[in-house]
Amino acid sequence: MITHFQFKPLFENKEMPGWHFSFYFKKQKYTGIYHPNGEIEWTSSIPPGESADALKAQIHELMLFHVYDK
């Protein structure tokens, strides 16, 4: 389960899409960049293989809810 999920715009000009995000998973902090096309670029260590796909899906859902569903 993801905890302490946070995001902020990648650029000062908030009209330009892209977001930095961070969260904790199993007491490990992960960070990355969420691109407008849904691609995730990890800027920290990559989550373990068995968890990576599930975490990507959760991040995508959170970003859709917080950024696109306004």
Rank of each mutant, 00 (worst) to 15 (best):
L64S: 15
P9M: 04
K29D: 06
Q28I: 12
P47T: 08
Q58V: 07
N13M: 10
L62N: 10
E61F: 06
P48M: 01
T31I: 06
S45R: 14
H20L: 03
E15L: 10
D69M: 13
S45L: 12
D69E: 14
K26H: 10
G18T: 10
H4C: 05
T3H: 00
S44Q: 03
P17D: 01
E41I: 08
S45N: 14
S22F: 09
E39M: 07
M16A: 11
S22I: 06
I33Y: 04
L10R: 04
E50H: 10
I46V: 14
H35T: 08
P9D: 05
Y24H: 04
H4V: 04
V67D: 01
E15W: 07
Q28A: 08
H35K: 07
P17Y: 10
A54M: 09
S44A: 06
I59E: 00
F25C: 04
E41M: 13
W42A: 02
Y34W: 13
F21P: 04
T43G: 05
H35W: 14
L55Y: 03
K27F: 02
F21I: 02
K70T: 11
T31N: 02
L62E: 12
Y24A: 01
K26G: 05
P47G: 09
W42G: 02
L10A: 07
E12T: 10
I33T: 02
W42E: 13
G38Y: 08
K56E: 14
D69I: 00
E50G: 06
K27W: 00
H66K: 15
M1Y: 11
H60E: 15
K56F: 08
K14T: 13
G18A: 02
K26Q: 14
F7R: 00
Q28G: 01
N37L: 13
E50F: 11
L10K: 03
P17S: 05
F7Q: 03
E12Y: 07
E61W: 06
I59S: 02
